[in-house]
Simulated scan of single mutants.
Amino acid sequence: MDTRRHEAPTRRTVLTAALAAVAATASLTAGCTRHGTADDGRPPQATPAPTEGTPAPSGQPATGSVLAVKIDNVAAARPQTGLDAADVVYAEQVEGGLSRLMAVYATKLPEVIGPVRSVRESDLELLRQFTRPTLAFSGAQKKLLPLIDRAPLRPESPAEASAAYHRGSGRPAPHNLYLRPAKLMPDGAPGRAALTTGFRYGPAPAGGTVTASRTVRYPAARFTFSWSGDRNRWLVSMDGTPATTTAGNRLAAATVVVQHVRVRPSEYHDVLGNNTPFTETVGSGKAEVLRDGRSFEATWSRPAATGGTTFTTADGSPVNFADGQVWVVFAKS
Rank of each mutant, 00 (worst) to 15 (best):
M1A: 10
D2S: 14
D2A: 08
T3Q: 00
E7Q: 08
E7V: 13
P9D: 11
R11Y: 08
R11S: 08
R12N: 12
T13A: 15
L15S: 01
L19A: 04
V22M: 12
V22G: 03
A23F: 10
A26G: 11
C32M: 02
R34Y: 08
D39C: 13
D40H: 10
R42D: 05
R42E: 03
P43K: 13
P43S: 12
P44L: 04
T47E: 10
T47D: 06
A49M: 06
T54D: 15
T54C: 15
A56D: 11
S58V: 12
V66E: 10
L67F: 01
A68Q: 08
A68R: 05
V69M: 07
K70G: 01
V74E: 09
A75V: 10
A75G: 07
A76V: 01
P79R: 10
L83K: 05
D84T: 04
V94K: 07
E95R: 06
G97P: 10
L98Q: 02
L98E: 06
L101C: 01
V104I: 12
K108W: 00
E111A: 15
V112H: 12
V119R: 11
R120L: 06
S122D: 08
D123V: 02
Q129N: 05
F130N: 12
T134I: 08
A136P: 15
A136Y: 08
F137T: 09
A140L: 04
Q141D: 14
K142H: 13
P146G: 14
P152W: 03
P152K: 10
P152D: 07
L153A: 02
P155H: 12
E156G: 12
A164F: 09
A164Q: 11
Y165K: 11
Y165T: 10
H166Q: 11
G168D: 09
G170A: 13
G170H: 09
A173R: 07
H175G: 13
Y178T: 01
R180Y: 01
M185D: 00
G191Y: 03
G191D: 03
A193C: 03
A193M: 05
R200F: 02
A204P: 00
P205W: 07
T209W: 06
T209R: 15
S213F: 00
R214K: 13
T215E: 14
T215I: 00
V216G: 03
V216T: 03
Y218S: 04
R222L: 06
S226T: 03
W227P: 01
D230T: 06
R233F: 13
W234K: 15
G240S: 00
T241S: 13
T246Q: 12
T246Y: 12
A252R: 11
R262S: 02
E267H: 14
H269P: 07
H269M: 06
D270T: 01
D270V: 00
V271P: 15
L272D: 05
L272E: 11
G273Y: 02
G273T: 03
N274Q: 14
N274W: 11
T276K: 10
T279L: 04
G283P: 13
G285V: 00
K286M: 06
A287H: 01
A287T: 04
E288L: 12
S295P: 12
S295K: 13
A298G: 14
W300I: 02
W300S: 09
P303C: 15
A304T: 01
T306C: 14
G308V: 08
T309Y: 08
T310M: 06
G316Y: 01
S317M: 14
P318E: 09
V319H: 09
N320Q: 00
G324F: 07
G324M: 07
W327A: 04
W327L: 05
F330P: 05
